[in-house]
Design a protein around this nucleic acid. Structure first.
Lengths: 145, 145
DNA sequence: TTTCCTGTTGCAAAAATTTACAACAAGATA
DNA sequence: TATCTTGTTGTAAATTTTTGCAACAGGAAA
């Protein structure tokens, strides 16, 4: 995932928010750390670079960037939260409750279904990320479940 | 939602687990408190009846009963967790990120779609509860969003 | 470049959630 | 009913996440 800093910064300023070193560090961290990074992982990463950057700021910024649709919240098994870059093309996950693995679902699989539901319920579904929980093929065969 | 205690107790014992007063109290609480009850709400309720029942037990039992498929975990806005009885007929939610309201989706709306995904990805989707996040009609019209 | 307004941060405390461990108690067995 | 095995609980501490508030700093305007 590329992290177009210039574009994002412009978007934030346009909305009246500020571009701080903390926000830039945290955004870069999520971008570099990959697909589903936890707050603690982000903190470890940025804290090594900027030792005064606090945990509170990590949580606040992750939350903030999610509100701005720059990050997407990813729900892992057991309700644990992670984050990832919210790209222009949404993608979704099948989360295995047993081994915690993620299987990627392309947006196209969901799209027409979601559109139909939106129309039917007059509800604008946020398609930046959806997680379905269950059990993957590997865990089903080994558990005998 | 009826709470068939006898049946549930039998199921637990059959699986080698014990039926304790704590578990019964917590289960009844979720059953009575309705559709999407938070751990703190459960604690407040049961603690009035059994003052020595600890928060740790509430969290542990909610987690345990969810593993046993007796409760279902409901994901509210912002990743907050709640629980409800996991009835024989699953139902799902459209969760408004703005006002936190829940719109019920009957299982039938999802069923055929989920079946198709299961086949395609060899993944057994757990249909006891699914949440979609987004914005309800009211919030969309008032925010101008 | 300096000033000013106010959005942000760090700190520390509060609140929420999880965990280790010894004491307890459910319920199977005799 | 008494006994015994082991699943559960309460306590307290650890960990994770949120929040209040004063100091700080981004960036618009002069």
């Amino acid at each position: 995932m590329t992290c177009n800093t210039a574009e994002i910064n412009r978007q934030l300023r346009k909305s009246g928010y500020r571009v701080t070193p903390q926000r830039q560090l945290i955004l870069e961290a999520v971008c570099q750390l990959g697909e589903h990074v936890t707050p603690e992982t982000v903190y470890d990463h940025v804290h090594r670079i900027a030792p005064t950057l606090s945990r509170a700021t990590v949580y606040r910024v992750l939350h903030f960037l999610t509100e701005q649709r720059i990050l997407a919240m990813v729900l892992m098994a057991e309700g644990r939260l992670a984050y990832e870059m919210s790209g222009p093309e949404p993608h979704h996950h099948l989360v295995c409750r047993t081994c915690d693995s993620l299987l990627e679902l392309p947006h196209s699989v969901l799209q027409s279904f979601l559109r139909a539901m939106e129309t039917q319920y007059d509800f604008e579904i946020d398609v930046s990320h959806v997680s379905f929980f269950g059990h993957c093929a590997d865990c089903r065969s080994s558990d005998g479940a």
